[in-house]
């Protein structure tokens, strides 16, 4: 057996470092030690270290929620990606494949363009509901009395995404300048608007899906043998598929509602993890969660510092990093297929 004892300690250390880095980064210079004290104060509700009140305020209300949201969303997207890739038995599947992101984008666009000024929560809520509905439609389209076909699921996902894209196009055409800017920014994804409510929701979703996914990890492994083979091993394949798709829709839906569309985390992270520790979901899922948290938090640090004092949408950063990696993966896959 290969020695993997180093893996958890090193990846957790990495997580803590990323967390501190993210808390130190921002337009207001706060020294690392002061930031650290501020986090301690926040966690213990005590005045353990000396921190200026305005600095404590920035840490409490801006940097901590932002860091935690990046991490929970990153962990959620990465695990949902891993599960979708397992479910579709295709390493190039991403969590948006079941239509949840495109549906959420349409929901958000409707709220932004048709109901301007209805508040940002309504955008998040509209996105979440529309993402869930779209997933259920895609799922219905792909199901028949004899089960749910993965190929049909994929094709209906593509078709519904195209339809949602057309809807967004139409809304873009109708939008005024203000709504247009909001819409464009939303679609690029950003963690800048992080608030504690979103952190709580996204953390709850993360705990739920992590727990359920981990419980399904053996069944997911079996599913990679093929659906018939998994059934012969005693897996309730159709129940499992519904459960996993529904949980992904919830996880991705809440993430998209909180941050807009952030691409490539769900696609790339499980891939990197598979290259390091292999495809066994029992290890793949937890490690993907931690790595997803690290990568999205780092991307957000990049988004804040690359063009400081201004900011890039984090979706742009993940795409700039993720797309070249994806092409690299495709090329590798191609060589193996030929």
């Amino acid at each position: 057996m290969e020695n993997r004892a180093w893996l958890w300690p090193s990846i957790l250390t990495f997580l803590v470092i990323t967390c501190l880095l993210s808390i130190v980064t921002g337009p207001l210079q706060i020294a690392p030690l002061t930031s650290f004290n501020a986090v301690l104060n926040w966690a213990t509700h005590l005045e353990l270290g000396a921190v200026a009140p305005h600095e404590q305020l920035v840490i409490n209300n801006v940097r901590l929620p932002r860091t935690l949201l990046a991490m929970t969303v990153g962990a959620t997207l990465a695990q949902c990606g891993a599960v979708m890739q397992g479910l579709f038995r295709n390493p190039l599947a991403d969590p948006g494949i079941i239509g949840v992101s495109s549906g959420a984008a349409l929901g958000a666009a409707i709220c932004i363009v048709l109901f301007p000024g209805s508040g940002e929560y309504s955008v998040a809520f509209g996105a979440f509901i529309a993402g869930l509905i779209t997933t259920l439609v895609v799922y219905r389209l792909a199901s028949s009395s004899s089960g749910t076909s993965v190929v049909l699921l994929l094709l209906s996902g593509v078709a519904i995404a195209a339809l949602a894209g057309a809807g967004i196009g139409l809304l873009t055409y109708l939008a005024d300048d203000m709504a247009l800017r909001d819409l464009t920014l939303w679609q690029m994804g950003s963690i800048a608007g992080a608030q504690w409510q979103y952190v709580t929701l996204s953390l709850l979703a993360l705990l739920l899906i992590s727990w359920q996914f981990y419980r399904s990890s053996k069944a997911l492994n079996a599913l990679l043998l093929g659906e018939a083979e998994a059934r012969h091993l005693g897996v309730e394949v159709d129940k499992l598929k519904f459960k996993l798709i529904f949980l992904c829709a919830v996880g991705v839906g809440i993430s998209v509602a909180a941050t807009g569309i952030i691409g490539f985390i769900g696609l790339v992270v499980p891939h990197i993890v598979r290259m390091i520790i292999g495809p066994d979901h029992k290890r793949l899922l937890p490690i993907s969660a931690v790595l997803g948290a690290i990568i999205l938090a780092l991307a957000d640090v990049g988004a804040r510092s690359l063009v400081a004092p201004s900011e890039l949408p984090v979706g742009l950063v993940t795409a700039m990093l993720g797309a070249p990696f994806f092409i690299f993966m495709l090329l590798k896959q191609k060589n193996r297929l030929i």
Partner: peptide
């Protein structure tokens, strides 16, 4: 035919 393409040991 068993089509397992993921690199399990």
């Amino acid at each position: 035919h068993a089509s397992l393409t993921f690199p399990f040991a």
